[in-house]
Simulated assay, not measured.
Amino acid sequence: MPSPFDIVDSANREFEKLFNEGKLSELVKLYSDDGKLLPPDKNVYDGHEAIQKFWQGATAAGVKDIKLTTGNVLEAGDYLIETSSYKHSLDHGNFQVIWKKNSDGKWQLHIDIFN
């Protein structure tokens, strides 16, 4: 059985792959249906459609080559709390994700916050 770190690290590799290949409609499926994205622009992007629009705007602004470095992962029942870092063509920083385990056992980004 994979560890919480391995679960999140694998999902981060999938996020990188989908983003870097421009497959944003697939990328948003990594988020739960009620997922939220809270970037530094102080807005809350709620749900797949809003999250996809945010990432489309990021790519249009020149963000490419995302690299996620998985840091600490804490287990809390049906949630995992990740504190990690990112780097891309225009910036670098830190992020925290609360991962939610669905009824089918799949882990998805539930709340994604970065600076």
Rank of each mutant, 00 (worst) to 15 (best):
G62R: 06
H110V: 05
A60D: 13
F5R: 05
V28L: 04
A50S: 12
E14V: 10
F54T: 02
E82M: 00
Q56L: 03
H92F: 11
V97E: 05
L18D: 12
D46E: 05
N12R: 11
D34W: 07
S89G: 15
G35D: 00
N94R: 15
H110T: 06
L30N: 01
Q56S: 08
L30C: 02
N102K: 12
I51L: 05
L80A: 00
P4W: 02
K42P: 03
I7N: 14
A76T: 13
N115V: 09
N102M: 14
V73K: 04
K29N: 13
N20A: 06
S103Y: 02
I113D: 02
E21K: 11
L74M: 15
I81Y: 12
P39G: 03
H48S: 10
L90E: 13
K42M: 15
E49S: 02
L68S: 05
G105A: 06
A60Q: 12
P39I: 06
A11D: 01
G57D: 06
G47T: 15
D78V: 13
Q56G: 03
L80V: 04
F19D: 08
D33F: 01
A76C: 13
Q52T: 09
D46P: 00
L27R: 04
K17G: 10
A11N: 09
E16R: 04
E49N: 05
T59E: 00
L109H: 02
S85M: 11
D112A: 03
F114V: 03
F19G: 03
N72I: 14
T69G: 13
L80F: 05
G93S: 15
P2N: 11
W55V: 07
N12C: 14
K106G: 13
D46V: 07
F5C: 03
F114P: 01
L109I: 02
F54Y: 05
I7K: 10
V63D: 09
V8Y: 08
K100N: 03
G62N: 07
F54A: 04
T83D: 14
F54I: 05
T83P: 07
K23I: 09
Y31F: 10
V28Q: 02
A50F: 05
G35A: 07
V97R: 00
I51C: 01
A60Y: 10
K64C: 07
